[in-house]
Design a protein around this nucleic acid. Structure first.
Length: 193
DNA sequence: TTATAGATTGCCT
DNA sequence: GGCAATCTATAAT
């Protein structure tokens, strides 16, 4: 699923307008046995969505500052999810930048990759740009037509995918469960890809 | 009840 | 490259 979600759009309907970003980077988190996964310790109030039906938003708060968005992926009762790590801004870019607290110096900024990268490259950044919080979105369907937060296939074709170990974890860190569109500038992180 | 680590980011040198 | 910010879940007393 982490691989299949690359290239799809994440679309948010807000009262002020529609926000959309293309999924560039994801990570898979498994259930029992994956000690980096929130589901590893069993079902709790915090991670209950992971144990529910597939296609639902699992939003958690981390480091006292940031929300991160996942989608539950396995059958009801079986934990497992995909973390969204980076989006390429596609629509509603000015509103996304504003949600991030980024100053728009000139209109030309909206076309600069260095500017666009700051908006939604990174799991905390993309959640902030898409106005995602746990209170608002946790448990919501991401595959329902009616949902205001939704995954959409617009026919975009991903050419090549790179697979690496996951970022920012210590336990179960060696498994190659991070996926991103090869040579795409919106991949998160400081290291060389 | 208290301590600690955490699926991050942004500012500093 | 180093590290503080800031809250929460979970582990340790």
């Amino acid at each position: 699923m982490a691989r299949a979600l690359l290239g799809k759009l994440l679309v948010r309907k807000t009262p002020r307008g529609i926000l959309a970003g293309r999924i560039i980077e994801t990570e898979a988190y498994l259930g029992k046995g994956d000690r980096a996964a929130h589901a590893a310790a069993g079902k709790t109030a915090r991670n209950a969505v992971l144990f529910g039906p597939p296609g639902r938003a699992y939003v958690y708060f981390i480091y006292g500052n940031h929300y991160c968005l996942n989608v539950s992926c396995l059958a009801d009762g079986v934990p497992g999810c995909v973390l969204f790590r980076a989006l390429e801004p596609v629509s509603g870019i000015a509103q996304m930048a504003e949600a991030r607290g980024i100053e728009l110096a000139k209109e030309i900024d909206l076309k600069k990759i260095s500017f666009l990268k700051k908006i939604s490259s990174g799991p905390g950044r993309l959640a902030e740009a898409m106005e995602i919080t746990r209170a608002r979105d946790n448990g919501k369907s991401l595959v329902s037509q009616r949902s205001d937060l939704r995954i959409v296939d617009d026919g975009y074709r991903v050419r090549r995918v790179t697979v690496t170990p996951r970022i920012g974890i210590v336990k179960s860190a060696e498994q190659p469960l991070r996926y991103f569109i090869a040579r795409n500038p919106f991949v998160s992180g400081r290291r060389v890809h």
